[in-house]
């Protein structure tokens, strides 16, 4: 679904954010991208839809190259990539419905979108998605009236109405409380399964990632240093990604260190009990 080869990005000023990244994400796979702040996670997913222009390398989505496209071709390519943001990035003064329908901007002409005359099929789909995300009846509320969790659901609807093949998710839970974070992650997992979407999820919360994703990729200083299933993430690998830290203490203090990943999951489950 997504194939990245030799992707590098050097910002003006010489900061090397990505350094020869190779990555494949197959259809239907929810992949978490972890790593310390400044490791290049945000840059990586923004290179995929070219919100950030890559310095070198090749990106292919669904068999079609994204790098080297003209602006018209890029618009068409972006329609197939839904993006979800940390601070939701909803247009605050527009309603829930308008925000969701803005996901169709790549498909409708300017005047139709300016006059808010979206095709009935799009409107039907918007109603269905809003209902599916548990926001039924809120279509006419303005985005700035919603809570964080509700806003993120609108953000997810906006990405899904694009009918994407690939989801690019940038820190979806960083601004949310633990319970809402889990609900949002669960919704993402279900939706990816339903629609067989590939997804890259940038995430800081390693425990949360381990609970929900099938694969974890660790990024450090612009290079991939870990790629494997959640269970394979050990103290050593975490140290390799993030640097030295007492990982056992932060996840599960009373457990002996024989299986950190399991301990982490146990801690998360306890967290879940208290959250309920």
């Amino acid at each position: 679904m997504l194939r990245i080869r030799g992707l590098s990005k050097t910002y003006r000023g010489g900061d090397r954010a990505l350094d020869g990244v190779d990555l494949d994400v197959p259809r239907g796979q929810l992949m978490a991208l972890i790593g310390p702040s400044g490791a290049g996670k945000s840059t990586l997913i923004r290179c995929v839809n070219r919100l950030v222009e890559p310095s070198a390398g090749e990106i292919v989505v669904d068999g079609a190259p994204v790098t080297g496209l003209s602006s018209g071709g890029l618009r068409a390519a972006r329609r197939r990539m839904g993006m979800i943001f940390q601070e939701y990035a909803l247009v605050e003064r527009l309603t829930v419905m308008e925000n969701v329908l803005s996901g169709r901007l790549g498909y409708v002409g300017f005047w139709a979108s300016w006059l808010r005359r979206f095709p009935q099929a799009d409107v039907d789909e918007a109603f269905r998605l809003i209902e599916r995300a548990g926001l039924g009846g809120m279509q006419d509320k303005r985005a700035d009236e919603l809570s964080g969790g509700q806003r993120q659901r609108v953000g997810i609807c906006r990405a899904l109405i694009q009918d994407p093949a690939l989801l690019l998710v940038d820190e979806p839970t960083a601004s949310l409380d633990p319970k809402t974070s889990r609900q949002i992650m669960r919704l993402l997992v279900e939706l990816c399964e339903e629609r067989q979407l590939a997804a890259i999820v940038n995430i800081h919360d390693v425990v949360l990632a381990q609970m929900f994703v099938q694969r974890i990729v660790g990024l450090r200083a612009g290079r991939i240093v870990f790629d494997g299933p959640p269970d394979a993430l050990t103290t050593e690998t975490l140290t390799e990604i993030y640097g030295e830290e007492d990982w056992a203490a932060s996840s599960a203090p009373e457990d002996d260190d024989e299986d950190d990943a399991a301990a982490a999951r146990a801690a998360a489950l306890r967290l879940a009990e208290t959250a309920r």
């Binding site: 919100l51 618009r75 993006m83 943001f85 247009v91 996901g103 169709r104 300016w114």
Partner: peptide, 16 residues
């Protein structure tokens, strides 16, 4: 940025 990511044209970016 979010509007750009949907594949909106330049005019649509201004409008939305």
């Amino acid at each position: 940025e979010a509007i750009t990511a949907t594949g909106a044209s330049a005019a649509q970016r201004i409008a939305f």
